[in-house]
Design a protein around this nucleic acid. Structure first.
Length: 228
DNA sequence: GCGACAG
DNA sequence: ATCTTGTCGC
């Protein structure tokens, strides 16, 4: 996939915030897809940090939505050394550099990409999914396991139940979706070039048995597998 | 000043 | 996120 290089990743936290504030004008939510039926392939990605080996490993897994078969996977790693620290709100500066290399390497073109983190449900509307969506010009969805920004009421304890995540002005910025009964809900938000309704449909279509959508479960697994 | 805080 | 043991439930 083609990657735009719009800025450097080796920046100070304040510079990172400035970059996010500039990029928020580039956020587009209009989707090239009208319905779930038009979405044939979905990719999931994740990054693993292993303290002992001091290695960072990223995985991108491309699956066919229809039957969840794996079409392709890319696994790459780098030393932990030069990684940006984890700072809430600046996750993309930690994870995007390696993920972009993985997206550069993958041959297939996913219709939609799922991220382990938020999209526009972010203090500057520039969560990991949104930031990478802008850089690779693909539809992206944020699917985080915990809250970063916004307020919500707990959804009903039923698979498929959801409530809205809103900002301080009560504007809807995401959905809090129960992907199965008796589990904590996940936080779904538009990343780039997809609307919230369709984003929720995609996540639901990727969940049957487990809390975490299948492309992310697979990416999580492969980001932790030892390579020899 | 205090609390909240994706991975 | 990492590290880590037992425990509960299908």
């Amino acid at each position: 996939m083609k990657i735009k290089k719009l800025h450097d990743w080796q920046v100070s936290p304040q510079e990172a915030i400035n970059i996010q504030n500039k990029l928020k004008n580039k956020v587009i939510l209009a989707s090239p897809y009208q319905s779930l039926e038009e979405i044939k392939t979905v990719a999931g990605c994740d990054v693993n940090y292993e303290k002992k080996s001091a290695i960072v490993q990223a995985a991108v897994v491309l699956i066919r939505l229809k039957d969840w078969t794996i079409i392709e996977k890319v696994i790459i790693k780098k030393p932990l050394k030069q990684s940006f620290p984890y700072i809430p709100g600046l996750l993309s500066f930690r994870e995007a550099p390696l993920l972009l290399l993985a997206f550069q390497k993958i041959k297939g073109i996913p219709d939609v990409i799922l991220f382990d983190g938020h999209g526009i449900a972010h203090p500057r509307q520039l969560g990991l999914a949104t930031h990478i969506g802008i850089l690779i010009n693909k539809s992206t969805i944020g699917c985080a396991k915990s809250l970063l920004w916004g307020e919500y009421n707990e959804p009903e304890n039923l698979k498929g139940a959801y409530s809205f995540l809103t900002d301080k002005n009560l504007k809807v910025i995401g959905a809090v979706l129960r992907t199965r009964k008796d589990v904590k809900p996940v936080f779904v938000s538009s990343g780039y070039k997809i609307n919230l309704d369709l984003a929720v449909e995609v996540v639901e279509a990727c969940c049957k048995k487990y809390r975490i959508p299948e492309p992310l479960r697979l990416a999580h697994y492969y980001s932790k597998t030892k390579l020899h």
